[in-house]
Amino acid sequence: MRKNLWKRVAAAAVCLTVLVVAQAAPFQAADDSYKDEINDLNGKISALKKEQAAIQADIDKAKNDKSKKEKEKKQLQNQVYLAQQEIELLTSRIGTLEGNIAQKESEIKDKQAQIDANYEQFKQRMRAMYLNDDSTVLGVVFGADSYSDFLTRTEMLQRTSAHDKKMIDELLEAKRAIEEALAEIQANKAQVEEDKSDMSAQKANLAVKVQEVAKQEMQLADLQKEFEAQKAQKQKEEKEAQAEIQRIYAENESIGDYVGGDFQWPVTGFRTITSRFGWRFGGSDYHTGIDIAGRNSSGSAIFQQPIRAANAGKVIYASNSYTPGRGYGRYVIIDHGGGMSTLYGHQNSVYVSVGDYVAQGETIGEVGTTGWSTGPHLHFEIRKNGTAVNPANYFNI
């Protein structure tokens, strides 16, 4: 009975001292200096985004056709450059995060090895305690020369045990902290990879836009060259085209009151305007509408894209025949009542006929380059009592 009691006392004492010999090295806090670099990169990326937004706002403020195209081209080139810089910064951020991840993985491995080693020694001591003779254990606890010495030894063992327990708790807490940091950095890395992919797509899209702007500039320049080379003839043809339109309006009374509501943009997803309403070519040609061209956000070209009725109404003109190089080519006029009408020129195909009633948004044809045109686009007009008015007064363009 007494022997078993001393065994239990000795075992308790050994449990308190199990890590005395195998103490791990004090845990060193992980190096968080990389966070300063990440914050610096984040600041630069944020600044680039603000600069890009400012450039886009500058583009949107441009009014004049030619200056708008030239400015848009230049600013788009700047955006491409900024996108490239942003990708480089994102790449640097990824490299920094990956290096920190590798460091933390190594720290976790080392700390886990320390914990495993201590635990293994704990198991070995417990096994030795169970198998060895009691004298060894009794020598530890009862080898004291006096009762005071016994108390001193017991207190020492307790304090040593408390120190070792604190040490192992710190190791475990450090391991948890590193694992949490690793999880956070891996999540950040995934986000950065996504950002990099998005920026690569943006860069490709911007490159396409630059090419498209250059192409649009060439089309407008070609149109101007053709106009200047045959100025008298083109002015004569334009007068004839306008006279034909006035004849159409004279022969077709408006259907009644205006059908109401706002006008709908005629080519969904395509917002690039290559030539605006009003005087152009140095004041020698008056453009009675706007030319819509370019590509949409997914990169699709406008050619053969569906043209949709800007509002409900009656088709009062639909032409499937045309003379190449002259006028509006294949075009449609829709009367919306109250003297309001819309015209859709240079169509590749016309899907409606005179007398048809169409709903707002209904497809009436597809974009082409028929008539006097140097590239695929939709010439779109809004007229009031037969007189062309600026579509900018009806759309946010």
Rank of each mutant, 00 (worst) to 15 (best):
H346N: 11
G329M: 05
G355K: 06
G337N: 13
G339P: 09
Y351M: 10
F380A: 07
N385C: 09
T369Q: 15
I364Y: 00
S373P: 06
Q347I: 05
T370N: 02
S373A: 15
Y344F: 13
V352T: 05
V354L: 07
V389W: 08
V332R: 01
H379T: 11
M340D: 02
N385H: 13
H346Y: 12
I334E: 01
R383C: 00
G361K: 08
A388T: 06
Y331W: 08
H379L: 14
L343H: 02
V358D: 05
L378M: 12
L343D: 03
G365D: 06
T369C: 11
Y344R: 03
T363C: 10
T374P: 01
H377R: 13
G355H: 06
S341D: 03
T342D: 00
F380H: 07
T342V: 07
E366G: 05
T363S: 14
G386C: 06
S349K: 15
G338F: 08
T342F: 02
V367T: 05
V350S: 05
G339C: 11
G329A: 11
V389S: 10
G339M: 11
G386R: 03
L378W: 10
S373F: 05
T374F: 07
G339L: 10
G368R: 01
V332W: 02
L343C: 06
R330M: 09
H377W: 13
D335E: 08
T374R: 05
T363W: 11
G371L: 04
I364N: 00
Q360L: 11
E381V: 01
N385W: 14
E381N: 07
I333W: 00
G368K: 01
A359G: 12
G371Q: 04
Q347P: 04
S353G: 12
G386F: 04
T387M: 13
G355W: 05
S349M: 13
T370R: 00
V367E: 01
Y351T: 08
T374G: 05
G386I: 03
A359S: 15
M340N: 00
K384F: 14
Y351C: 07
Y344V: 03
T374H: 08
T363G: 08
P376T: 12
S373K: 04
G365V: 07
S341P: 02
G375L: 08
G345W: 03
I334M: 02
V332T: 05
G365W: 00
R383Q: 03
Y331T: 01
R330I: 04
G339T: 10
G329R: 00
R383L: 04
S341V: 00
